[in-house]
Amino acid sequence: MEEGVGVVNEEIWALGAESVILRVRRWGRTLIEKRRRAKPYLLPEIDSLLRRQRTNRECRMLNRVRRLGVRAPTVYAVDWSSYSILMDFVQGEQLKVIAQTCSDDDLMDLCKEFGRMLGLLHTGGVVHGDPTTSNIIVDPQRRLWLVDFGLAEWNATVEMMAVDLHLVRRTLETTHWDRQEIMLDAVLQGYWDQMASSADEILSRMEEIRERGRYH
């Protein structure tokens, strides 16, 4: 059986597609342990490659993005035998959940800030890779934290940044269909505030990507 990073006590906090998120007590504080378990239905070569690559990526990115001014959990330890990362537990609620109940004004403020954070990442050459509203935590002070950097990449090109924005639009389409317009507008507004005119090329590429996968 898989062992964690010297876990004392733990509870399953969330079950993701590619990992189990455990809430653990360690050194007198509450932390998160993210464990990427083996998937027996994948070719073992691919499975272990992905687990290793994403664990590696996530650790490096969490450190890197904080230097860009983006709030993200601090990494404390990594266990390569179980592909687990021990990191800060961010208190708060997913934007996905908040967006179901909060007012339009409140939501637009949060989305604008989300856009600004994406702009900060992109300015630093990083793309998130999975910028859904589930991966944004709003803390009690209404500050936004970005989590889940397993699909993140650096040395971002215009294409990669445009895909990142396209994914934001996709998540709004499928998950926040009734408020997608105001949310997208606010995200892009915040993004533009941060990126200024360098956003133009990326935004027009985003439109291009939207057309690409479609029947013609």
Partner: peptide, 13 residues
């Protein structure tokens, strides 16, 4: 034999 190929998942796409 498995030869590694680009594995490209972007969010849910």
């Amino acid at each position: 034999r498995y030869y590694q190929l680009p594995y490209s998942v972007k969010g849910m796409d």
